[in-house]
Each structure stands twice: as C-alpha cells, then as structure tokens.
Simulated scan of single mutants.
Amino acid sequence: MSFLELTKQRYSVRKYKAKPVEREKLLQVLEAARNAPSACNFQPWHFIVLTEEKIKAKVAETYPRDWFKEAPVVIVACGDHSASWKRADGKDHCDVDLGIAIEHMTLAAAELGLGTCWVCAFDAKRCHEILELPAHLEVIALLPLGYPEEETSPEKKRKRLEEIVTWK
C-alpha cells in the first residue's frame, strides 16, 4: 500500500478485539517512533508500554472511557522539555517532536493491521503520579493500541485542499 493510501486508511479506533498484540508488532511500532525526526535530532521522548492489566486499569482512571479500558496495550508518550531544542524566541519543540513520533507510531500500527487513538484529554498530572515518573518527564499523550473490532475504517471528513493551502 502507498503512503497516501495508509494515511487515508488510518483512523481513531475506539473499539478493540480482546486479542493480545504480538511483541514483534509492538517493537515495529516503537521502532517507527525511534526513527522519527526531531528538532536538531535531540529526540526528547520516552515511551512507556503498558500491557499489565493492573497498571493499565490505574492509568485508565485518568481517562475514564469504557473503550479505552478494552485496548490490550497503552503506550504512554512522554516528553523531556529539558532535552528538547528551543528556538531563539524560546519556542520549545518538545511537543512538536512528540507529535511527529506519535504519528509515526499510529501509521506504523495501521500498516500492521493495528488500531490506535491519540488521547490527549486525560489527567496528565495524575497519570504522572500513577507511573511514578521523574519530574523532568511530562506525559504528552496516551496511545491505546490493539486490533480494531471493525474491519473497515469509517469515512473521514476532510477539508478540501483549496481550503487549507495558499500558493504565493
């Protein structure tokens, strides 16, 4: 499948099969993140892979949605602002770098027949406490991962190219 077809196929999965994700596939998804570009190649990221039910249940308290609890894996994407590149005007690119790495993971997952959903509306402070993370790491996003219950992706509404591009 072409890259453009892959971007069209990927969607936010909110219903997962009760099927474990093979370690080889998890490693491929994580390798995609590792290979992501970052500002000045600083790679200010750290990923925590949750597969044990007990810790997943605790983290699920920070985003209490039933579908989230169904995912067999949750990847916690963390950023290290002390290790990220800052532009001359002070703009910190940690979140941008993490965004790129997370998107690499979502696309790699889709290519492998897995589904994900980028979760940002969670209690990041509580998640940080539950995982007993060091102060220099910020939890940026949660990425539930597993086999989608539905086999087909829903139709996505997208703006026309003319609405989002200006040529000069």
Rank of each mutant, 00 (worst) to 15 (best):
G146T: 07
H136G: 01
S82H: 11
L133T: 11
P37R: 13
V13R: 00
F42Y: 15
H128A: 07
A121G: 07
W118E: 02
A39D: 04
E162A: 15
D95I: 07
E5C: 09
E5T: 15
H81M: 03
T166W: 09
I102F: 00
A124C: 05
E138W: 06
I100Y: 06
T51D: 07
Y16N: 00
L27P: 04
A77P: 02
R65K: 15
Y63E: 05
S2G: 13
C127W: 00
L145S: 03
S84C: 12
E138N: 14
H81N: 05
A36P: 08
A101P: 06
A109R: 02
L133V: 11
S12W: 02
C78F: 06
E151W: 08
L137T: 01
L26V: 09
E103K: 09
I75E: 01
D92G: 07
P64A: 11
A109L: 13
W45I: 03
H81P: 01
R87K: 12
D66S: 11
C127T: 14
A39Q: 05
E149Q: 15
G146Y: 03
K15R: 14
R34W: 09
W118Y: 11
I55C: 04
R14P: 02
R160D: 15
K159Q: 12
L112D: 03
V119W: 05
K15Q: 11
C127S: 15
C40N: 09
P72C: 07
Q28H: 10
P44A: 02
V76F: 05
A141G: 06
L143A: 07
A33V: 11
L50K: 04
Y16G: 01
D89T: 09
I55W: 03
L27F: 10
V49R: 04
L4M: 11
A36I: 11
A141E: 02
T152K: 15
E22S: 11
F42C: 09
T7V: 14
D89S: 09
C40S: 12
S12K: 03
P134T: 10
S2T: 14
R160Y: 10
V59H: 03
G146R: 01
Y11F: 14
R34I: 04
K159V: 05
L142E: 04
E5S: 14
L114E: 01
P148M: 08
L50M: 08
G146M: 07
N35P: 00
T106C: 14
K168Y: 10
S38W: 05
W167K: 12
L161C: 04
K69P: 00
K159H: 13
I48H: 09
E111R: 11
E111F: 08
I102K: 00
Q28E: 15
A36S: 14
K156Y: 07
Q9H: 14
C78L: 13
H46P: 01
E149K: 08
L114T: 02
N41L: 04
F47L: 07
D123M: 06
R10G: 09
Q28W: 05
L131S: 05
T166S: 11
